Structure formats: C-alpha cells, structure tokens
Amino acid sequence: MTDQRIEGAVTEAGGKVQNGFGRLTGDSKLQIDGKLNEVKGKAMDAYGRVIDGLDGMVDKAPADLRDPARKGLDFARRKPLLTTGIIAGAAVLLGALSRKR
C-alpha cells in the first residue's frame, strides 16, 4: 500500500468529520471544506491504487526495463501532482494530434 493511499484515507475521513461538524453547527464553509477534503482523499487513494498496480506490472517487466520503470515509479510517488500534470499534458497533445489526421 502506497503512502498516497494511506494519506488519502486519512484526508477523506477528516473531510467526512469536517462535513459532519459543518452540518451539525450549520457552518456551510466547514461543510464545503469537508467535501473538498473528501474528494481530495478519494483522488489520492485512486492515485495510490494506480501506483500499486503499476508496481505489480514492473515486477513482471523484462529484466532490462525494471530499473528504469522503478525510477519512474519512484518519481511518481515523490511528485504526484507533477506526474498527473505531465500525463494530462501528454493526453491533451495526443488528442490534438489525433484530431488533425
């Protein structure tokens, strides 16, 4: 289990508590902050699940590709937002290139 999954579960649980207190006290800002933390926690958990899945795939990769793949996964673990941005940018570029054909 990756750190992102653990942190995501904690953030999501904290968000649920915030949201509950917000509903109990009638504090709409606290409710919104709680909902945002719930969503953030779910996103972090999903990212961690992807990293865990890729980690299993690296173990099955050919021996000469394992080290570079592990370095890439280590980068993704250390910098999740940057990794997500890189992947999103690549997807936008590929989408734009495919439309031109």
Rank of each mutant, 00 (worst) to 15 (best):
K35V: 03
L36E: 09
L36V: 08
N37V: 02
E38R: 01
E38Y: 02
V39I: 15
V39F: 04
V39H: 09
K40W: 02
G41M: 15
G41C: 10
G41Q: 13
G41S: 15
G41H: 11
K42Y: 05
A43C: 04
A43D: 08
A43P: 00
M44L: 14
M44F: 10
M44R: 14
D45W: 12
A46I: 03
A46Q: 13
A46D: 05
Y47K: 05
G48N: 06
G48R: 10
R49P: 01
I51P: 13
I51A: 05
I51C: 09
I51S: 04
D52H: 03
D52I: 14
L54C: 12
L54I: 09
D55E: 14
G56S: 10
G56R: 15
M57D: 08
D59A: 14
K60V: 10
K60A: 15
K60H: 03
A61W: 01
A61D: 03
A61F: 05
P62Q: 14
A63R: 15
D64N: 15
D64V: 09
L65E: 05
R66E: 15
R66A: 11
R66K: 15
D67V: 06
D67W: 01
D67G: 12
P68D: 05
P68R: 07
A69D: 02
A69W: 10
R70W: 11
R70C: 03
R70I: 08
K71S: 10
G72F: 12
G72E: 11
A76V: 06
A76K: 00
A76G: 12
A76L: 05
K79S: 06
P80A: 01
P80Y: 02
P80F: 02
L81E: 06
L81K: 09
L82P: 05
